[in-house]
Design a protein around this nucleic acid. Sequence first.
DNA 1: TGATAGTCGTTACATTATAACATATCAATA
DNA 2: TATTGATATGTTATAATGTAACGACTATCA
Lengths: 159, 159
Amino acid sequence: MKTIGFDSHNHDACISDALGIATDICAQQKLQFTPVRRRVLEILLHEHRAMGAYDILEVLSSEGLGSQPPVVYRALDFLVKHGLAHRIEGLNAYTACAHLDHEHVPAFLICRTCKAVAETDTGIAQGRLGQAAASAGFTIEKVVVEAEGLCPSCAGAAA
Amino acid sequence: MKTIGFDSHNHDACISDALGIATDICAQQKLQFTPVRRRVLEILLHEHRAMGAYDILEVLSSEGLGSQPPVVYRALDFLVKHGLAHRIEGLNAYTACAHLDHEHVPAFLICRTCKAVAETDTGIAQGRLGQAAASAGFTIEKVVVEAEGLCPSCAGAAA
DNA sequence: TGATAGTCGTTACATTATAACATATCAATA
DNA sequence: TATTGATATGTTATAATGTAACGACTATCA
Protein backbone atom coordinates (compact mmCIF):
# COMPACT_ATOMS: atom_id res chain seq x y z
CA MET A 1 0.00 0.00 0.00
CA LYS A 2 1.58 3.21 -1.14
CA THR A 3 0.06 6.63 -0.70
CA ILE A 4 0.68 9.13 -3.43
CA GLY A 5 -0.17 12.75 -3.32
CA PHE A 6 1.23 14.89 -0.54
CA ASP A 7 4.87 14.06 -1.05
CA SER A 8 6.86 16.22 -3.42
CA HIS A 9 8.04 14.70 -6.65
CA ASN A 10 9.20 15.44 -10.17
CA HIS A 11 5.87 16.51 -11.46
CA ASP A 12 6.71 16.83 -15.15
CA ALA A 13 8.03 13.29 -15.19
CA CYS A 14 5.01 12.18 -13.18
CA ILE A 15 2.68 13.62 -15.81
CA SER A 16 4.50 12.26 -18.81
CA ASP A 17 4.89 8.85 -17.20
CA ALA A 18 1.19 8.69 -16.49
CA LEU A 19 0.29 9.80 -19.99
CA GLY A 20 2.61 7.17 -21.39
CA ILE A 21 1.01 4.43 -19.33
CA ALA A 22 -2.45 5.68 -20.25
CA THR A 23 -1.48 5.62 -23.93
CA ASP A 24 -0.30 2.05 -23.57
CA ILE A 25 -3.43 0.97 -21.75
CA CYS A 26 -5.62 2.47 -24.46
CA ALA A 27 -3.54 0.85 -27.20
CA GLN A 28 -3.73 -2.54 -25.53
CA GLN A 29 -7.47 -2.32 -25.13
CA LYS A 30 -8.03 -0.73 -28.53
CA LEU A 31 -9.54 2.35 -26.97
CA GLN A 32 -9.38 5.67 -28.75
CA PHE A 33 -7.26 8.04 -26.70
CA THR A 34 -8.54 11.10 -28.53
CA PRO A 35 -7.23 14.66 -28.12
CA VAL A 36 -10.05 15.70 -25.79
CA ARG A 37 -9.64 12.64 -23.60
CA ARG A 38 -5.89 12.99 -23.49
CA ARG A 39 -6.10 16.67 -22.71
CA VAL A 40 -8.61 16.14 -19.90
CA LEU A 41 -6.35 13.54 -18.31
CA GLU A 42 -3.42 15.91 -18.74
CA ILE A 43 -5.33 18.69 -17.02
CA LEU A 44 -6.19 16.41 -14.13
CA LEU A 45 -2.63 15.16 -13.88
CA HIS A 46 -1.32 18.69 -13.91
CA GLU A 47 -2.95 19.25 -10.55
CA HIS A 48 -2.90 16.46 -7.99
CA ARG A 49 -6.20 17.81 -7.07
CA ALA A 50 -9.91 17.26 -7.42
CA MET A 51 -11.36 19.39 -10.19
CA GLY A 52 -15.00 20.02 -11.03
CA ALA A 53 -16.19 19.18 -14.51
CA TYR A 54 -16.86 22.83 -15.22
CA ASP A 55 -13.35 23.82 -14.11
CA ILE A 56 -11.97 21.41 -16.65
CA LEU A 57 -14.42 22.60 -19.26
CA GLU A 58 -13.18 26.12 -18.78
CA VAL A 59 -9.64 25.06 -19.64
CA LEU A 60 -10.77 23.01 -22.64
CA SER A 61 -12.88 25.84 -23.82
CA SER A 62 -10.01 28.32 -23.66
CA GLU A 63 -8.07 25.93 -25.90
CA GLY A 64 -10.80 25.43 -28.45
CA LEU A 65 -11.30 21.80 -27.52
CA GLY A 66 -15.00 22.03 -26.83
CA SER A 67 -17.18 24.42 -25.00
CA GLN A 68 -20.29 22.48 -23.95
CA PRO A 69 -20.75 20.32 -20.84
CA PRO A 70 -21.25 17.02 -22.67
CA VAL A 71 -17.75 17.26 -24.09
CA VAL A 72 -16.09 17.17 -20.72
CA TYR A 73 -18.56 14.74 -19.17
CA ARG A 74 -18.00 12.26 -21.98
CA ALA A 75 -14.27 12.48 -21.62
CA LEU A 76 -14.56 12.05 -17.85
CA ASP A 77 -16.90 9.10 -18.27
CA PHE A 78 -14.37 7.49 -20.55
CA LEU A 79 -11.47 8.09 -18.19
CA VAL A 80 -13.39 6.89 -15.15
CA LYS A 81 -14.80 3.86 -16.92
CA HIS A 82 -11.35 2.70 -17.90
CA GLY A 83 -9.72 3.50 -14.62
CA LEU A 84 -7.63 6.43 -15.82
CA ALA A 85 -9.38 8.82 -13.48
CA HIS A 86 -11.65 8.65 -10.47
CA ARG A 87 -14.71 10.53 -9.41
CA ILE A 88 -14.57 12.03 -5.93
CA GLU A 89 -18.16 11.62 -4.75
CA GLY A 90 -17.81 13.87 -1.76
CA LEU A 91 -16.87 16.81 -3.96
CA ASN A 92 -18.65 16.08 -7.22
CA ALA A 93 -15.21 16.29 -8.71
CA TYR A 94 -12.63 14.28 -10.56
CA THR A 95 -8.99 13.38 -10.20
CA ALA A 96 -6.43 11.48 -12.25
CA CYS A 97 -5.69 7.96 -11.15
CA ALA A 98 -2.40 7.77 -9.32
CA HIS A 99 -2.06 4.01 -9.57
CA LEU A 100 -2.36 3.39 -13.28
CA ASP A 101 -0.04 0.43 -13.17
CA HIS A 102 -2.28 -1.99 -11.31
CA GLU A 103 -5.85 -2.87 -10.46
CA HIS A 104 -6.97 -1.44 -7.16
CA VAL A 105 -9.82 -0.30 -5.00
CA PRO A 106 -8.98 3.34 -4.50
CA ALA A 107 -9.34 5.22 -1.26
CA PHE A 108 -8.82 8.95 -1.06
CA LEU A 109 -7.49 11.46 1.41
CA ILE A 110 -8.96 14.80 0.40
CA CYS A 111 -7.84 18.12 1.83
CA ARG A 112 -10.88 20.25 2.49
CA THR A 113 -8.83 23.41 2.11
CA CYS A 114 -6.73 22.98 -1.01
CA LYS A 115 -8.60 20.00 -2.53
CA ALA A 116 -5.35 18.08 -2.90
CA VAL A 117 -6.07 14.40 -3.28
CA ALA A 118 -3.91 11.50 -2.19
CA GLU A 119 -4.82 8.10 -3.45
CA THR A 120 -4.14 4.94 -1.57
CA ASP A 121 -5.23 1.36 -1.70
CA THR A 122 -7.68 -0.27 0.58
CA GLY A 123 -8.52 -3.85 1.19
CA ILE A 124 -11.94 -2.82 2.35
CA ALA A 125 -13.81 -5.59 0.57
CA GLN A 126 -11.75 -8.05 2.55
CA GLY A 127 -12.18 -6.09 5.75
CA ARG A 128 -15.06 -5.31 8.03
CA LEU A 129 -17.27 -3.93 5.29
CA GLY A 130 -16.74 -7.12 3.34
CA GLN A 131 -17.74 -9.14 6.38
CA ALA A 132 -20.84 -7.03 6.93
CA ALA A 133 -21.82 -7.38 3.29
CA ALA A 134 -21.30 -11.13 3.32
CA SER A 135 -23.38 -11.58 6.45
CA ALA A 136 -26.16 -9.43 5.00
CA GLY A 137 -26.11 -11.33 1.71
CA PHE A 138 -25.12 -8.18 -0.13
CA THR A 139 -23.08 -8.31 -3.33
CA ILE A 140 -20.58 -5.46 -3.51
CA GLU A 141 -19.90 -4.13 -6.98
CA LYS A 142 -18.21 -0.85 -6.22
CA VAL A 143 -16.77 0.75 -3.11
CA VAL A 144 -16.28 4.42 -2.32
CA VAL A 145 -13.84 5.30 0.45
CA GLU A 146 -13.10 8.97 0.96
CA ALA A 147 -11.58 10.68 3.96
CA GLU A 148 -11.85 14.42 4.19
CA GLY A 149 -9.56 16.45 6.38
CA LEU A 150 -6.41 18.53 6.34
CA CYS A 151 -3.27 17.75 4.39
CA PRO A 152 0.08 18.33 6.09
CA SER A 153 0.76 21.68 4.47
CA CYS A 154 -2.71 23.13 5.14
CA ALA A 155 -2.60 21.84 8.71
CA GLY A 156 0.75 23.59 9.07
CA ALA A 157 -0.56 26.82 7.58
CA ALA A 158 -3.53 26.84 9.96
CA ALA A 159 -1.36 26.36 13.05
CA MET B 1 -20.86 -4.35 14.55
CA LYS B 2 -24.44 -4.90 13.55
CA THR B 3 -25.83 -4.37 10.10
CA ILE B 4 -29.34 -3.03 9.84
CA GLY B 5 -31.36 -2.77 6.74
CA PHE B 6 -32.04 -5.87 4.70
CA ASP B 7 -33.54 -7.95 7.46
CA SER B 8 -37.28 -7.78 7.98
CA HIS B 9 -38.55 -6.19 11.15
CA ASN B 10 -41.52 -4.50 12.77
CA HIS B 11 -41.31 -1.33 10.82
CA ASP B 12 -43.92 0.71 12.68
CA ALA B 13 -42.16 0.05 15.95
CA CYS B 14 -38.83 0.77 14.28
CA ILE B 15 -40.10 4.18 13.17
CA SER B 16 -41.65 5.16 16.46
CA ASP B 17 -38.62 3.95 18.42
CA ALA B 18 -36.32 6.01 16.26
CA LEU B 19 -38.54 9.09 16.54
CA GLY B 20 -38.58 8.65 20.30
CA ILE B 21 -34.82 8.45 20.51
CA ALA B 22 -34.48 11.43 18.19
CA THR B 23 -36.87 13.41 20.37
CA ASP B 24 -34.79 12.56 23.43
CA ILE B 25 -31.55 13.49 21.73
CA CYS B 26 -32.95 16.87 20.71
CA ALA B 27 -34.31 17.49 24.20
CA GLN B 28 -30.99 16.64 25.80
CA GLN B 29 -29.08 18.93 23.49
CA LYS B 30 -31.73 21.65 23.56
CA LEU B 31 -32.29 21.39 19.86
CA GLN B 32 -35.61 22.35 18.33
CA PHE B 33 -37.19 19.27 16.84
CA THR B 34 -39.64 21.28 14.78
CA PRO B 35 -42.51 19.87 12.70
CA VAL B 36 -40.64 20.06 9.42
CA ARG B 37 -37.54 18.40 10.87
CA ARG B 38 -39.56 15.69 12.53
CA ARG B 39 -41.57 15.05 9.42
CA VAL B 40 -38.48 14.80 7.22
CA LEU B 41 -36.96 12.26 9.58
CA GLU B 42 -40.24 10.38 9.60
CA ILE B 43 -40.30 10.29 5.81
CA LEU B 44 -36.75 8.97 5.72
CA LEU B 45 -37.53 6.39 8.39
CA HIS B 46 -40.61 5.27 6.57
CA GLU B 47 -38.40 3.96 3.80
CA HIS B 48 -35.13 2.27 4.68
CA ARG B 49 -33.95 3.82 1.55
CA ALA B 50 -31.96 6.68 0.13
CA MET B 51 -34.17 9.55 -0.94
CA GLY B 52 -33.26 12.63 -2.92
CA ALA B 53 -33.95 16.02 -1.39
CA TYR B 54 -36.51 16.77 -4.06
CA ASP B 55 -38.32 13.49 -3.44
CA ILE B 56 -38.70 14.47 0.18
CA LEU B 57 -39.72 17.99 -0.79
CA GLU B 58 -42.49 16.56 -2.91
CA VAL B 59 -43.95 14.78 0.10
CA LEU B 60 -43.60 17.83 2.33
CA SER B 61 -45.15 19.99 -0.28
CA SER B 62 -48.17 17.73 -0.65
CA GLU B 63 -48.69 18.11 3.09
CA GLY B 64 -48.38 21.87 3.17
CA LEU B 65 -45.13 21.77 5.11
CA GLY B 66 -43.12 23.87 2.71
CA SER B 67 -42.69 23.91 -1.00
CA GLN B 68 -39.29 25.44 -1.66
CA PRO B 69 -35.93 23.66 -1.74
CA PRO B 70 -34.37 25.52 1.19
CA VAL B 71 -37.01 24.09 3.49
CA VAL B 72 -35.95 20.52 2.91
CA TYR B 73 -32.24 21.28 2.68
CA ARG B 74 -32.32 23.06 6.01
CA ALA B 75 -34.10 20.19 7.65
CA LEU B 76 -31.66 17.71 6.12
CA ASP B 77 -28.70 19.83 7.20
CA PHE B 78 -30.05 19.80 10.71
CA LEU B 79 -30.62 16.06 10.75
CA VAL B 80 -27.23 15.27 9.24
CA LYS B 81 -25.40 17.72 11.47
CA HIS B 82 -26.82 16.11 14.57
CA GLY B 83 -26.40 12.56 13.38
CA LEU B 84 -30.08 11.79 12.92
CA ALA B 85 -29.62 11.19 9.22
CA HIS B 86 -26.78 10.62 6.80
CA ARG B 87 -26.02 11.86 3.34
CA ILE B 88 -25.24 9.18 0.77
CA GLU B 89 -22.61 10.85 -1.36
CA GLY B 90 -22.71 8.33 -4.14
CA LEU B 91 -26.38 9.06 -4.79
CA ASN B 92 -26.75 12.70 -3.75
CA ALA B 93 -29.37 11.34 -1.39
CA TYR B 94 -30.23 11.01 2.27
CA THR B 95 -31.20 8.28 4.67
CA ALA B 96 -32.26 8.09 8.32
CA CYS B 97 -29.59 7.01 10.75
CA ALA B 98 -30.08 3.42 11.80
CA HIS B 99 -27.77 3.62 14.82
CA LEU B 100 -29.20 6.52 16.75
CA ASP B 101 -28.20 5.05 20.06
CA HIS B 102 -24.45 5.42 19.79
CA GLU B 103 -21.64 7.35 18.16
CA HIS B 104 -20.32 5.68 15.06
CA VAL B 105 -18.56 6.06 11.75
CA PRO B 106 -21.22 4.87 9.37
CA ALA B 107 -20.61 2.66 6.36
CA PHE B 108 -23.34 1.91 3.86
CA LEU B 109 -24.40 -0.95 1.66
CA ILE B 110 -26.53 0.56 -1.07
CA CYS B 111 -28.59 -1.46 -3.51
CA ARG B 112 -28.26 0.05 -6.97
CA THR B 113 -31.63 -1.32 -7.97
CA CYS B 114 -34.02 -0.53 -5.14
CA LYS B 115 -31.86 2.06 -3.30
CA ALA B 116 -32.32 0.19 -0.04
CA VAL B 117 -29.62 1.23 2.40
CA ALA B 118 -28.08 -0.88 5.14
CA GLU B 119 -25.96 0.89 7.68
CA THR B 120 -23.09 -0.71 9.46
CA ASP B 121 -20.15 0.40 11.53
CA THR B 122 -16.61 0.59 10.36
CA GLY B 123 -13.37 0.97 12.21
CA ILE B 124 -11.84 2.41 9.11
CA ALA B 125 -9.97 5.20 10.85
CA GLN B 126 -8.17 2.55 12.85
CA GLY B 127 -7.60 0.39 9.79
CA ARG B 128 -5.56 0.70 6.64
CA LEU B 129 -6.93 4.11 5.72
CA GLY B 130 -5.98 5.36 9.17
CA GLN B 131 -2.47 4.02 8.70
CA ALA B 132 -2.19 5.62 5.28
CA ALA B 133 -3.39 8.94 6.66
CA ALA B 134 -1.01 8.81 9.58
CA SER B 135 1.97 8.03 7.39
CA ALA B 136 1.04 10.87 5.02
CA GLY B 137 0.59 13.32 7.88
CA PHE B 138 -3.07 13.76 6.97
CA THR B 139 -5.65 14.62 9.61
CA ILE B 140 -8.93 12.82 8.99
CA GLU B 141 -12.04 14.76 9.96
CA LYS B 142 -14.73 12.80 8.19
CA VAL B 143 -14.87 9.46 6.42
CA VAL B 144 -17.25 8.30 3.72
CA VAL B 145 -17.56 4.57 3.14
CA GLU B 146 -20.17 3.43 0.67
CA ALA B 147 -20.50 0.11 -1.10
CA GLU B 148 -22.83 -0.11 -4.04
CA GLY B 149 -24.19 -3.41 -5.28
CA LEU B 150 -27.16 -5.72 -5.07
CA CYS B 151 -29.18 -6.44 -1.96
CA PRO B 152 -30.30 -10.02 -1.36
CA SER B 153 -33.81 -9.58 -2.67
CA CYS B 154 -32.78 -7.73 -5.86
CA ALA B 155 -30.03 -10.29 -6.47
CA GLY B 156 -32.68 -12.99 -6.12
CA ALA B 157 -35.08 -11.23 -8.46
CA ALA B 158 -32.41 -10.87 -11.12
CA ALA B 159 -31.47 -14.55 -11.02
C1' DT C 1 -40.51 44.09 27.69
C1' DG C 2 -36.71 43.99 24.84
C1' DA C 3 -32.68 41.57 23.08
C1' DT C 4 -30.94 37.68 20.92
C1' DA C 5 -30.54 33.57 18.47
C1' DG C 6 -32.70 30.45 15.86
C1' DT C 7 -36.16 29.12 12.44
C1' DC C 8 -39.17 29.63 8.39
C1' DG C 9 -41.04 31.22 3.83
C1' DT C 10 -39.78 33.01 -0.34
C1' DT C 11 -37.37 34.68 -4.56
C1' DA C 12 -33.86 34.16 -7.30
C1' DC C 13 -29.94 31.92 -8.79
C1' DA C 14 -25.71 28.77 -8.96
C1' DT C 15 -23.82 24.36 -9.86
C1' DT C 16 -23.73 19.82 -11.64
C1' DA C 17 -25.31 16.66 -15.07
C1' DT C 18 -27.98 14.52 -19.17
C1' DA C 19 -31.21 13.77 -23.12
C1' DA C 20 -31.48 14.07 -27.77
C1' DC C 21 -30.09 14.73 -32.31
C1' DA C 22 -27.18 15.96 -36.16
C1' DT C 23 -22.50 15.62 -37.88
C1' DA C 24 -18.01 13.77 -38.32
C1' DT C 25 -14.48 10.28 -38.07
C1' DC C 26 -12.46 5.77 -38.08
C1' DA C 27 -11.76 0.93 -39.21
C1' DA C 28 -12.98 -3.08 -41.63
C1' DT C 29 -14.22 -4.91 -45.80
C1' DA C 30 -17.15 -5.71 -50.14
C1' DT D 1 -12.60 3.01 -53.61
C1' DA D 2 -17.06 3.04 -51.73
C1' DT D 3 -20.01 1.28 -48.11
C1' DT D 4 -21.19 0.31 -43.76
C1' DG D 5 -21.33 0.17 -38.80
C1' DA D 6 -19.44 1.65 -34.65
C1' DT D 7 -17.60 5.31 -32.18
C1' DA D 8 -16.77 10.09 -31.14
C1' DT D 9 -17.92 15.05 -31.40
C1' DG D 10 -20.64 19.44 -31.54
C1' DT D 11 -24.71 21.65 -30.18
C1' DT D 12 -29.11 22.96 -28.12
C1' DA D 13 -31.92 22.56 -24.56
C1' DT D 14 -33.15 21.14 -20.10
C1' DA D 15 -33.03 18.33 -15.82
C1' DA D 16 -31.44 17.64 -11.15
C1' DT D 17 -29.20 19.22 -7.17
C1' DG D 18 -28.01 22.85 -4.09
C1' DT D 19 -27.43 27.96 -2.04
C1' DA D 20 -27.42 33.06 -1.12
C1' DA D 21 -29.97 36.44 0.66
C1' DC D 22 -33.72 38.84 2.78
C1' DG D 23 -37.60 39.67 5.69
C1' DA D 24 -40.89 37.78 8.97
C1' DC D 25 -41.83 34.95 12.78
C1' DT D 26 -40.89 32.42 17.30
C1' DA D 27 -38.70 30.78 21.39
C1' DT D 28 -36.02 31.92 25.22
C1' DC D 29 -34.30 34.45 28.70
C1' DA D 30 -32.21 38.57 31.10
